[in-house]
C-alpha cells in the first residue's frame, strides 16, 4: 500500500493529537496545558481539512473555520483565567490551585 499525501496528513494529525494529549496530561504548568489543547485543536483541524480534500467536499473546511474561531475565543478566556489563577495562588502550577474558594 502506498502512503499518499492524504493518508500522510491523517497520520500526522493522529500523531500531533497524541502529543497534545500527552502534554495536557503530563505537564504541570497551566500555560503548557493550554498550549497542549491548542495543539489538539490544530490536529483535529488538520484531519478535517485532509478528509475534506480527500472527499472533494467543502463542509470540512467550513467546520475548520468555525473551530479556529472557537479556539481563539477559548485561548483568550483561558489565558485570562490563567492570569487570575496566578494572581490568586502566586504560581502557575496546576497542583497549587487546589482550593475552590475564591
Amino acid at each position: 500500500m502506498y502512503i499518499t499525501n492524504e493518508l500522510f496528513i491523517q497520520i500526522l494529525a493522529a500523531f500531533l493529537f497524541m502529543m497534545g494529549m500527552l502534554i495536557v496530561v503530563q505537564r504541570r504548568n497551566t500555560i503548557m496545558v493550554l498550549m497542549g489543547i491548542e495543539l489538539m485543536l490544530n490536529a483535529a483541524n488538520l484531519s478535517m481539512v485532509g478528509f475534506s480534500h480527500y472527499l472533494s467536499q467543502i463542509d470540512g473546511q467550513v467546520q475548520v473555520f468555525f473551530t479556529i474561531t472557537i479556539a481563539a475565543a477559548e485561548s483568550a478566556v483561558g489565558l485570562s483565567i490563567l492570569i487570575n489563577l496566578f494572581r490568586n495562588f502566586g504560581s502557575s502550577k496546576t497542583g497549587e490551585a487546589s482550593i475552590l474558594r475564591g
Binding site: 490544530n42 473546511q61 479556529i68 474561531t69 481563539a72
Partner: peptide
C-alpha cells in the same frame, strides 16, 4: 493542499493572534 483560505486564516489567527497572546501572557 490548495486550501488557501484556511492557510491564510491559520497564519493570521493562530500563528498571529493566538500565539502572540500566549507569548504575551
Amino acid at each position: 493542499m490548495q486550501e488557501h483560505f484556511i492557510a491564510a486564516i491559520q497564519l493570521v489567527v493562530y500563528a498571529g493572534a493566538v500565539m502572540v497572546l500566549f507569548i504575551f501572557s
